[in-house]
Design a protein around this nucleic acid. Structure first.
Lengths: 195, 195
DNA sequence: TAGTAAGCGGAGCAGCGCTCCGGTTGTCAA
DNA sequence: TTGACAACCGGAGCGCTGCTCCGCTTACTA
């Protein structure tokens, strides 16, 4: 079972360093957020700064590698929810909830994700887009049942989900209201008959 | 008509510098956002860095002085809306709209405002709190008419308004959806009969 | 006008992102 | 096994940041 095909053909030491960097990055970003010092990451990995930048030319590239699995899992989760025997708006709410939970792993992550909207060259853009599209299918399914208002698109959904995560990562005091605010937003998304 | 009592008893040059700094800060933060380089502000004001830090010991102190008038106006606006002959949820929506418009003056401002929630020592905290309380009265008034759900407090309102501003200042593309997202959030705030 | 407190401004420190390049080392062919 | 070399390493260095500290200047007042 070959892990991570991305590093095939590399020298053994390069591959070892890559793994060390990713491990250290997970720890450091977990403590300091997405804006953590990359010097700290290199230091913790026991690696030179140049080595870090060669493996991950931008902060986004590092972040993308750290998050890719999570994106994939969120996309799969959307697929599962599509097939599940659930009210469509319930499925949507569950997905958003899962999304905001995961966005909480690194402080500053919601901002980093939102930034990809305006920067198609970002390394994060592609894998983020893929997840967004799967979530979009979940949204459209819910709209087709008439449970979710039709004048909302995938980008709105993404923005709202990120905004919710953003709120939660601003202050611990308000993070406790996350679920409450989610139901509020879901009510806003609901298609309330007329209108 | 004496302006700005805060600088009374100061030497004339100190007062002059204070004004220069505020003017320069308005320009620089307008261009670069709330995280702009304070060196740039000092440079543009034609003043040493030490002078800037003596007048405004922290970035928040500078920001607070720049925003105080705006906070006051927003509080007054809330008062006006309370007395106005408007459906209560309409008044609330108008206030939020006004708030998010003003939060757009500096990029990064929503984040700076939210940060005051968890940092009572911030220079911004006090003037922000005053405005929040006036907005809270607007909220409660709307709740008493039964138009707005009762399980929402002033902090929720503040968080949501800031989140909306935050979305708008992430990417110009999504900023256009601001009003749309506002109606969505207002629908979420609405008290839809049962529940 | 002279004494002085208040104010000034930039040198300096530690840290940041990012680049660049001389030295090292893993790898593979001979 | 050994040698050659591409691949890789790591940190010095650049220009920036926030923030402090202190010798010099200047506006005020007695």
């Amino acid at each position: 079972m070959p892990d991570e095909p991305a590093q095939q053909g590399q020298r053994a030491d390069a591959q070892r360093n890559r793994e060390r960097i990713l491990e250290a990055a997970g720890e450091v970003l977990g403590e300091q957020g997405t804006q953590a010092s990359l010097r700290d990451v290199a230091r913790r990995a026991g690696v030179g700064l140049g080595t870090l930048y060669r493996h991950f030319p931008t902060r986004d590239a590092l972040l993308e590698t750290l998050l890719r699995t999570g994106f994939d899992q969120l996309a799969e989760e959307a697929g599962r929810l599509l097939d599940a025997d659930l009210p469509s708006e319930r499925a949507l709410a569950d997905w958003i909830s899962e999304f905001t939970l995961r966005s909480g792993t690194f402080r500053g992550l919601p901002a980093s994700l939102m930034a990809t909207l305006g920067d198609p060259d970002s390394a994060l853009h592609a894998s983020c887009l893929a997840m967004r599209e799967t979530a979009g299918r979940l949204l459209r399914a819910a709209q087709e049942t008439g449970r979710i208002r039709p004048d909302v698109d995938g980008t709105d959904l993404f923005a709202l989900a990120n905004a919710l995560s953003w709120i939660a990562d601003q202050a611990p005091s308000i993070a406790a209201r996350r679920d409450h605010l989610l139901t509020l937003i879901m009510d806003g998304l609901a298609n309330s008959g007329a209108r």
